[in-house]
Write a protein that binds this DNA or RNA. Structure first.
Length: 300
DNA sequence: CGTTGAACCTGTTTGC
DNA sequence: TGCAAACAGGTTCAAC
């Protein structure tokens, strides 16, 4: 599910619903996506969720120092965070304790109001880690600029000097934090830049446009609560609406909204990439995939 | 500094 | 209809 707008949507939902709650106990299922499962069982109970932050595609549940009146037996006297990455299929939301536990629910945190904060992830590409301040800072240090905040100058400097393909740069979390396959393709379509162009091939003008449309798209997508392609639901179980605005992503074989050419697909940076062959001129030698035989299905 | 392909998993869609 | 292959919004790592 989750790129910046979807993660922001989930974070806002959690802010509304679980802020200030204290974690009573933790139950784990499969743990191969958790850095240190024992640390969760050991350090979460008794702590209060004081804030929910988003950093790129990561969510940070900020935890109080260990509960009032407790003896900090194990380093819990210091604040810490639960780092959550949703991977491809992760979902996190509060549920009534009596509610049936969805298949693939691997972390269950009982809250002090009787509800359970549950993390569900069929593919387990997500990640959960309990981190104190120093390791957390270390973790976040590797991430690039916030695409919503980055200045025109910094954006250009991170893109224009590079010989990697622009699509690879947009997806690289060390360059920009939070952009994934959907919003990369959408912003490139809007900026009329082919995904296989090299960063260094972009003019300052194009880089400026790309930054601007990326910000507009991400902001609009947040307002619309993200894109629900197959199963993304926010913390209230509501799907997002931004998929109806997609102009490139997932539209192979359909008409470009600007020029009516047929949207094509190719592999760039190892990912399916959708583009208009006319609006987004390909670099020499780039081969789009042949169009699959006409499929049914409505425009989306 | 780059790219590609495979790997990590499970579920759903597509193709013959 | 049915089964196998392809594909999925993410990240990482080895090999070149």
């Amino acid at each position: 599910m989750p790129e910046l707008p979807e993660v922001e949507t989930v974070a806002r939902g959690l802010r509304r619903t679980i802020l200030g709650r204290r974690i009573v106990s933790v139950t784990l299922g499969k743990t191969d996506f958790i850095d240190d499962p024992v640390a969760l069982e050991q350090h979460l109970p008794g702590r209060q969720i004081e804030a929910v932050d988003r950093y790129g595609k990561f969510m940070l549940l900020r935890l109080s120092a260990a509960g009032a009146g407790r003896i900090p037996a194990n380093g819990d006297a210091t604040p810490a965070s639960l780092l959550v990455h949703l991977g491809m299929t992760g979902q996190i939301a509060p549920h009534a304790a009596a509610e049936h536990r969805e298949k693939h629910t691997h972390v269950c945190m009982l809250l002090d109001d009787g509800r359970e904060l549950r993390y569900t992830d069929a593919r387990r590409f997500g990640r959960i880690a309990y981190l104190t301040e120093t390791p957390l800072a270390q973790e976040l240090l590797g991430l690039g600029a916030d695409p919503l905040e980055v200045s025109r100058e910094e954006f250009a400097s991170r893109i224009c000097g590079r010989r990697a393909r622009i699509k690879a740069l947009l997806l690289d979390q060390r360059v920009l934090r939070g952009v994934g396959n959907i919003y990369a393709d959408e912003s490139l379509w809007r900026a009329k830049v082919h995904p296989a162009r090299l960063g260094a091939q972009l003019s300052m003008q194009q880089a400026g446009t790309l930054r601007r449309v990326l910000q507009e798209i991400l902001e609009k997508a947040i307002v619309m609560r993200g894109s629900s392609i197959s199963d993304f639901l926010d913390a209230d179980g509501e799907p997002g609406d931004y998929q109806r605005r997609h102009r490139a992503y997932g539209r192979e074989g359909k008409a470009c909204h600007r020029c009516k050419s047929v949207i094509r697909r190719g592999i760039v940076a190892g990912r399916s990439s959708y583009f208009c062959p006319k609006c987004q001129r390909a670099p020499r030698g780039f081969a789009a995939l042949p169009l699959p035989k006409a499929k049914r299905k409505r425009d989306h």
